[in-house]
Design a protein around this nucleic acid. Structure first.
Length: 258
DNA sequence: ATGTCCGCAAACTGCGGA
C-alpha cells in the first residue's frame, strides 16, 4: 500500500499538476493540504474522473485538507482537529481506507515567532499530540501525514543557522515534534534513509529549487503496529521542477498490507 | 532585507499569508 502527502498550494491552480502526478504514481491514498478553496469549489468531478474518491474540508482563501482514496470511498472519521471547538481553521481530516486509519494534517506555520501565531502553532501541536495518543491507544494501523511545518533536525534544512529563530525550527517546535515521536511513531522517510539529505519543500524565492535550498517539513508517521511493515519511502522530487509547481513535492510511504 | 506565488477585494494593484 502506498500513501502519499502533497501540499498543493491551491487545489484549483494545481489541478493539472495534481492529475498528472496521480496518473503517474497511482498512490492508494493521497493526502492534500492547502486547498485554498471553499468547500463548494473543490474539483470533485475531476478527481473522481481520475479514479479517486475524495473527502475534504475546505476553507475560503486559506488552509483546507483532503484525502483521496483510489477506487474506494474513504470512511470519514474526524473533520477538524479535536480539542478546541473555537478553532475554525480547516487543517485536519481522518478517514479509514482499506482498514488503515489515515490522518491528513496541515500544521500551522507559526511565523512570526514569538507571537500569537506561534502560540497557536504550539497549542495545535498539543492537541495533535492528544489525538495521536488516542490513535496509538486504539491499536489501529495509522498513518499520520501532511505538512507538519516542522524541520526536525539540522540535516533537514539547507542552512540550519539561518533558521534557528524560525517557527519551523525553534526549540519549542522541535521539542513538540520529539514528544510526538516519543509516543512511538515512526518517521518513515528518516527511518528509510537515516543519513540522507531529504527535502520536501523549496521556497519560490531566489531559485531555491535550482540551488537545492530546501527543507524537510512534509512527514509521514507510522503507528507502532504499522512500522514493521514499512518497505519504502521517498519524495517525488521532479514534480517540484515542473511548470507552475507547488512549493512542496509529493512525499510517500509504502508498506506491506493485504 | 530580500525574494515569489496564492486568493481576494475591488480591478487591471495591493495585501495578508506562506
Amino acid at each position: 500500500m502506498r500513501i502519499a502527502t502533497f501540499n498543493v498550494n491551491s487545489i484549483n491552480t494545481r489541478l493539472p499538476a495534481l492529475l498528472q502526478w496521480l496518473e503517474e504514481t497511482r498512490p492508494d491514498v493521497a493526502c492534500l493540504q492547502e486547498l485554498k478553496a471553499p468547500q463548494d469549489k473543490f474539483p470533485e468531478a475531476a478527481i473522481r474522473a481520475a479514479g479517486y474518491c475524495p473527502v475534504w474540508h475546505g476553507q475560503k482563501s486559506w488552509n483546507g485538507v483532503a484525502l483521496l482514496a483510489r477506487g474506494v470511498e474513504p470512511q470519514e472519521v474526524v473533520r477538524g482537529l479535536p480539542g478546541d471547538p473555537a478553532d475554525e481553521q480547516s487543517r485536519y481530516i481522518e478517514a479509514v481506507v482499506n482498514g488503515v486509519l489515515v490522518g491528513g494534517l496541515y500544521l500551522p506555520n507559526g511565523n512570526p515567532a514569538p507571537g500569537p501565531k506561534f502560540d497557536y502553532k504550539l497549542r495545535w501541536m498539543e492537541r495533535l499530540q492528544a489525538r495521536a495518543q488516542e490513535l496509538i491507544d486504539s491499536g489501529m494501523p495509522v498513518v499520520l501525514c501532511g505538512d507538519y511545518n516542522v524541520i526536525p533536525t539540522d540535516i533537514d534544512v539547507y542552512k540550519p543557522e539561518r533558521w534557528r529563530e524560525d517557527a519551523l525550527f525553534r526549540p519549542e517546535t522541535r521539542a513538540a515534534w520529539n514528544e510526538l515521536l516519543g509516543q512511538g511513531w515512526c518517521d518513515a522517510l528518516r527511518a528509510t534513509h537515516p543519513d540522507q539529505i531529504i527535502y520536501t519543500f523549496w521556497d519560490y524565492f531566489r531559485d531555491a529549487y535550482g540551488r537545492n535550498a530546501g527543507l524537510r517539513i512534509d512527514h509521514l508517521l507510522l503507528s507502532p503496529s504499522l512500522a514493521p511493515r514499512l518497505t519504502a519511502a521517498g519524495v517525488d522530487r521532479e514534480v517540484r521542477g515542473r511548470e507552475k509547481p507547488s512549493d512542496h513535492a509529493p512525499t510517500w510511504v509504502e508498506f506491506d498490507w493485504p
